[in-house]
Design a protein around this nucleic acid. Structure first.
Length: 284
DNA sequence: CGGCAAACCTGCGAGC
DNA sequence: TGCTCGCAGGTTTGCC
């Protein structure tokens, strides 16, 4: 999926297009994505006006004028595409679509169907099972405490799990995924295999700076485009060209230039069955 | 608590 | 060309 920067980019596109608009001709083309759509989902969105669009971790939150929030998660491959005019003919993985009262259309495409949507009452939104255990937001204090050095140090203290696993855990930091965990640990010069509880105050401080820095850079580039991800405008993000280590196995480290022929270079290891990339010289 | 595998589903590239 | 295999941005659950 889209990780935090990609979801944020999509969110900004949705915010610009949907705020103040009414949702018309809402269509659900199959009964489920990862989970079943809520009962009468299309009917309950139909005619509602959008008051705001926000992001919490990797969740898109669309506030409607009936005290409900349309929650969407893009899973691994979900895409929201907005365009002018009526709906184009549906593609095979276009599972949800709508038009707005000012003549735009929105299509949700998700080949793998790891995404999901829900409709929940605004009061108690924070208690929703999917939202209530999320850790601090790296880029804002809109949802509880922001990610500062002390908070991060406290969240990591006493944990035997690896730094990679700790940062992927949405209860510790909200919104990081497989790409940006590798990138943030590289920027902070911390090994992904270090036990989280072994992190020093100085390292926690570096990490608390590195995480928002890499996310901010990625958002500025419109996110990272791999196979599936595009901005809601349909444009590609280009942060994948700025990855320091992710998907760069065997290349020289961009900072220390260690050589793979001499035992250096970016390494790929598996942690929890997922690839981690790091520089063995700078991150130890 | 932790670590791992599996589950959900499809597509794509590499290698034979 | 065509097949199989491994891998892919996430999250949850269940089992040692």
């Amino acid at each position: 999926m889209p990780e935090l920067p990609e979801v944020e980019t999509v969110c900004r596109g949705l915010r610009a297009a949907l705020t103040g608009r009414s949702l018309m001709r809402v269509t659900v083309r199959r009964p489920d994505l990862r989970f079943p759509f809520p009962e009468n989902f299309a009917g309950r969105l139909q005619g509602r006006r959008v008051e705001s669009v926000d992001r919490r971790a990797k969740y898109i939150l669309v506030r409607l004028n009936d005290d409900h929030v349309w929650l969407a998660h893009l899973g691994m491959a979900g895409r929201m595409t907005i365009g002018p005019g009526a709906l184009p003919p549906p593609g095979p993985h276009d599972h949800f679509c709508l038009e707005t009262d000012d003549g735009q259309h929105l299509v949700y495409t998700d080949a793998r169907r790891f995404g999901f949507m829900d409709l929940i009452e605004s009061p108690g939104l924070a208690d929703h099972p999917r939202l209530r255990s999320l850790g601090p937001e790296p880029l804002s204090a809109n949802f509880g405490p922001s990610l500062d050095s002390d908070t991060l140090a406290r969240l990591l203290a006493g944990r035997a799990t690896s730094m990679k696993a700790a940062l992927l855990d949405q209860r510790i930091v909200a919104g990081l995924g497989n790409i940006y965990v590798s990138e943030a640990l590289y920027r902070a010069r911390i090994s992904p295999v270090r036990p989280a509880g072994s992190i020093t105050r100085a390292e926690a401080a570096r990490l608390a700076k590195a995480i928002p820095a890499v996310l901010t850079d990625a958002i500025a580039a419109g996110g990272s485009s791999l196979r599936d991800y595009v901005q809601s405008s349909g444009e590609l993000g280009y942060f994948q060209h700025s990855w320091a280590v992710y998907d760069r196995e065997g290349e020289r480290c961009p900072d220390c230039r260690c050589d793979p022929a001499e035992g250096g270079g970016v390494r790929r290891i598996l942690q929890g069955g997922r690839s981690t990339y790091y520089c063995p010289v700078l991150q130890c």
